[in-house]
């Protein structure tokens, strides 16, 4: 049987001996696609959540809290809030999809559930002591940050920030490594 132009191209692209079984060919193609470095599922989005404490004190009473740095610190400082200092209590990176909510624990008393709603929109549900206290549906394109906040004791404040981040680098596939 002579090869059609499409089959010829496919064969050339695969650079593999011709495999008789159609199922085997498709399986092989699927494996190669999935193992390629840096390819993420188109349904997955990568986000970062942080629990932040705002205060006018120079230090946090909790030694595990790090002073917030980087662009997020700059953003909060630029906003017209009265707090001088921001401390990072917890940071989590995670992926979401449009099938189910992803639970992200921020502290013993607080967690969020996040889901991809499509069109760069996400739903963030905030839980305090097991009860949902807020639900936000929001477009969250690249460079956009959502912060949910409230007053804490002694004139301080808490914030839970959620924003998109780059996909973490994945381990190179054995095939790709071997070819190099």
């Amino acid at each position: 049987m002579s090869l059609t132009p499409a089959r010829k191209s496919f064969s050339k692209f695969m650079d593999l001996p011709r495999v008789k079984s159609r199922l085997a060919r498709l399986t092989l193609l699927a494996l190669i696609v999935c193992s390629s470095a840096g390819v993420a599922s188109s349904a997955d989005r990568h986000l970062e959540a942080r629990l932040i404490w705002g205060t006018n004190d120079d230090k946090s009473p909790n030694p595990s809290h790090k002073r917030l740095e980087g662009d997020l610190a700059k953003k909060l400082q630029e906003l017209p809030f009265k707090w001088k200092s921001y401390f990072e209590v917890n940071r989590q990176t995670f992926t979401i999809n449009d099938k189910e909510y992803k639970k992200v624990v921020m502290s013993d008393k607080c967690f969020i559930e996040v889901k991809d709603k499509g069109d760069s929109k996400v739903t963030v549900k905030l839980y305090g002591q097991g009860k949902m206290t807020q639900r936000v549906d929001k477009p969250l394109p690249k460079d956009e940050t959502l912060a949910i906040g409230g007053d804490d004791k002694h004139d301080t404040a808490w914030f839970v920030t959620v924003r998109p981040v780059e996909a973490p680098p994945s381990k190179p596939a054995p095939n790709a490594a071997a070819k190099k």
Binding site: K75, G128, T133, T145, I148, A157
Partner: peptide, 24 residues
């Protein structure tokens, strides 16, 4: 800053024991 802040306010000064305070 490309930032949206959703602020949760609890107007009542006294809170019921079974009501979660997200800040507490």
């Amino acid at each position: 800053q490309k930032m949206t802040v959703v602020w949760i306010a609890n107007p009542s000064s006294k809170k019921a024991e079974d009501e979660p305070d997200p800040g507490e």
